[in-house]
Write a protein that binds this DNA or RNA. Sequence first.
RNA 1: GCCGCUUUAGCUCAGCUGGUUAGAGCAUCAGUUUUGUAAACUGAGGGUCGUCGGUUCGAAUCCGACAAGCGGCUCCA
Length: 594
Amino acid sequence: MANEQNDQLSAIRHSLAHLMAAAVIELYPGAKNTIGPAIENGFYTDFEMPEPISEEDLPKIEQKMRDILKTWSKFERREATVEEGREVFAWNPYKLEMLEELAKNGEAITIYTSGEFVDLCRGGHVDDAHSINPKSFKLTKVSGAYWRADQTKQQLQRIYGVAFETPDKLKEYLAMMEEAKVRDHRKLGQELDLFVFSDLIGPGLPLYTPRGTVLRRQLDNFVQEMRDEYDYQEVNIPHITKKDAYIASGHWKKFADELFRITTREGHEFAMKPMNCPHHTQIYAARSRSYKELPIRYRETTTCYRDEQSGELSGLSRVRAFTQDDAHVFCRISQVEEEALKIWDIIDRFYGAFGFELKVRFSTHDPANMESYSGGADKWESAEGQLLNIIKQKVGDSYIDGVGEAAFYGPKIDFMAKDAIGREHQVATIQLDFNQPEGFDLTCVNETGDRERILMIHAAVMGSIDRFLSVYIEHSAGKFPIWLAPEQVRIITLNQDEAIVKFASDVAAQAKKLGLRATVDDDNESVGKKIRNAEIMKVPYTVVIGQKEVESGELTPRVRKDIEVSAEHEPHTIDEFLKTVAHETKSRINKTSL
RNA sequence: GCCGCUUUAGCUCAGCUGGUUAGAGCAUCAGUUUUGUAAACUGAGGGUCGUCGGUUCGAAUCCGACAAGCGGCUCCA
């Protein structure tokens, strides 16, 4: 049932791709349409354009689409011979290329005609063009795209549209996009004073303000406290490394272009570390290890550097310096399952605490593309078998198949978090690595006194703190729970009376003693204005100190609207109030609604 | 890196087709006010209009290069 609906909707979307192609070709003589699939939420078509189009042209194209739609009724299918196809699409080299490919593979050549528009297409349209509601689609953006998704091939122009069954559903979707704009972490990062970028420092190099740094610290503490429960040991490594380490790990071969390289004055080649595994292997390999010591679990929160393509950079989601909450478990094959399950527990607890729903992707090698990976097919299959076994235990069959999504050194269990407005982001990862232990010759001495090859599990919970922050800021819309809030209590003075200001700063000092982040606002502004300022900064608790409070020693806290508390507007003694907040902070109580 | 778009004060934005000392709101600072739960009043300071070059009698405005940002593509250990 659900599938039939999906089929119908994607038929509408795909049909709209045809309609858009027809409109563009009519408006821009010389335009050549290429592929035009239905995608999530809509459709796109790639064109070779005689002149570049911009977003301002979209309404015009949209109008043309509606005009043409009136003249369409059916999508008529017919099979054609290769010769016939060559004639019909002689004007369009892209269609010709696809045509020759179909012919080569012995597949049927099908041509669809709707109105006056003729296209080479494998099908999947609505039966009747009138089942497309002219008010339930909208063209949204134009962008570049490569023919056949290949960077070395012709750059085309892609026009995206969104489409739904009804105008109401379209409106709903557009409203969601507006909400996404409000939650944009780059915007909130500035408004809430969390991080900045500087032209002087460079693109992709985020600078965290004191407030942003609190968030990072708190999130990291949360992960590391859980890891400590599982006997991880913290280690510490330098941020530059000799080239040799990356030759041994295999990274030099695959990622040489993305390394920030350094040549020393004596001519030795170093690189900024793009990941931490080689360093951690060398701590393990510093002496011989007995099987009795295993598993050995190292953890470290540390920054990595990658020279990402400039066009890839975006806010905190993709940066050139990012901090990983990294961990490596060195263990025997027989220990992999138990260790992976422990990591999985930490991941569940972490994401559960923020109300993220997790999906699991089993990221495996692509057998058709073995040159992208280290190690032989048999080892890959056995490693993947182990991971799959773990996945089945945890989630049965409800995982996504990620063929070709593996790291070059091993398969992964990737976790995708679904955020408050329904978007999915890749976050945590558990990776099984049988290649680097070989590259670095990692062994343990086993029961029979022989050296035995061990395995490595790479495990990042947040992945990169920066990326996690980008996801979490948008998920929470900046309304952080009390334990995370950069500023937890703002103490507002009613006026600038000396006794009141003194009292307020005493309360702040008391709060600080309890480990709280509290500030005093004794500006010469109205109380209303000061409340508003605290509200804008999304401070969880605001208290006003006036003569009344000074005399009674009681206060009535004002609580940020999304936080669910029972005794909000009741007076508390100051001591009681601060202790309650301190307790909430310590136990990471999360009472916000998303 | 590629395609398209954008760049005016700390922030958000005006500035029509090139024409005297570039504007507003918020923020900042100063003075007045001393305030009871989402914006007190008055005034002041702040911009070589992203950078460099070109066209022109004249450039924030037109053209080019570069930089940064945005939307995608490609990539992602």
